[in-house]
């Protein structure tokens, strides 16, 4: 019993320490934003890497998400003869929820883990110490460009994922439920307001900031050689996935209780 209490206390202490480090890093990154212009080459390079490197994965994820969503909702709507409404549901779901969440999950797996591995390797091979000794701030030099790049990529990829998902839904609507494309897209257009897209983009922004911060925090905290880098990478993926879903729910809840967004009752 005492052992369990000790383990739980240790885990809680470790979680608080990690959260504290992540918050401190986020603060330092915000301060370092004044150096965006100086780091523009690195930011562009990192943005290209995150966006281009994720295109195929996000395309496939979005296409099949849209298709599955259309198929499952189509089956239910068919019972009421409302299958023409597939466009409403797919478009609203993709833009509000699935687009930003699927993009964030893909970026956490692809880029968050990569940030943890890169910075972790640099940490254990004393490259981070070398930067500090040369009076080069690792946050300005390594972290800030990655955070800014991931935010930019996440925003662009979310719009792309929304579009591909809606297209996937259209394919299933037309092939499995005989919904004409013109009707599908008109319904999709009807349900979408800028507010829907903005909500998705706001989520994408917060998801990207949290994923990049978690990846960089884990990387900079890595120790004990290759094993430590592996642990940092693993923790980044796990923490990012959980955090993205928690944050998603929190944003949904806040937008509802504050009346910023009340939904359309599709």
């Amino acid at each position: 019993m005492t052992n369990w209490v000790m383990v739980a206390a240790g885990a809680f202490e470790s979680a608080c320490l990690t959260a504290g480090r992540a918050l401190a890093l986020m603060g330092a990154t915000t301060t370092a934003l004044g150096h965006v212009r100086r780091r523009r080459v690195e930011i562009v390079s990192q943005t290209f890497r995150a966006s281009y490197g994720s295109l195929l994965v996000t395309f496939l994820t979005a296409l099949f998400s849209g298709m599955i969503l259309a198929f499952q909702t189509g089956l239910e709507l068919l019972r009421f003869g409302q299958e023409a409404s597939i466009g409403y549901i797919v478009a609203a779901s993709m833009c509000r929820e699935m687009g930003p969440v699927m993009t964030a999950i893909a970026l956490a797996g692809l880029m968050g883990s990569s940030y943890a591995a890169e910075l972790g390797t640099m940490k254990v091979s004393e490259e981070i110490d070398a930067l500090e000794v040369m009076s080069i701030d690792p946050v300005r030099y390594l972290v800030m460009p990655r955070v800014v790049a991931l935010v930019a990529s996440s925003l662009a990829l979310t719009v792309y994922v929304d579009a591909v998902g809606i297209l996937g839904g259209a394919m299933v609507g037309a092939s499995s439920f005989n919904v004409e494309l013109s009707i599908y897209f008109r319904n999709a257009q009807d349900v979408l307001e800028m507010k829907e897209v903005w909500l998705g983009l706001i989520k994408a922004f917060f998801f990207a900031v949290s994923t990049a911060t978690i990846g960089c925090t884990m990387g900079l905290s890595a120790d004990q050689g290759a094993e430590g880098v592996g642990r940092a990478t693993q923790k980044t993926v796990v923490f990012s996935f959980v955090f993205i879903l928690m944050l998603d729910h929190l944003i949904n809840y806040l937008t509802k209780v504050t009346g910023i967004y009340v939904g359309r009752g599709v």
């Binding site: 490259e127 110490d129 070398a130 040369m134 080069i136």
Partner: peptide, 29 residues
């Protein structure tokens, strides 16, 4: 720190850049 040079045990060169860029880094920064 700007007045101090440090040779690390494993050299701690930044693996993502060439020797030239490693040496140029403090000057560029």
């Amino acid at each position: 720190r700007k007045k101090i040079g440090f040779l690390f045990q494993g050299a701690a060169l930044l693996n993502s850049m060439t020797v030239f860029d490693n040496v140029a880094l403090p000057l560029r920064e």
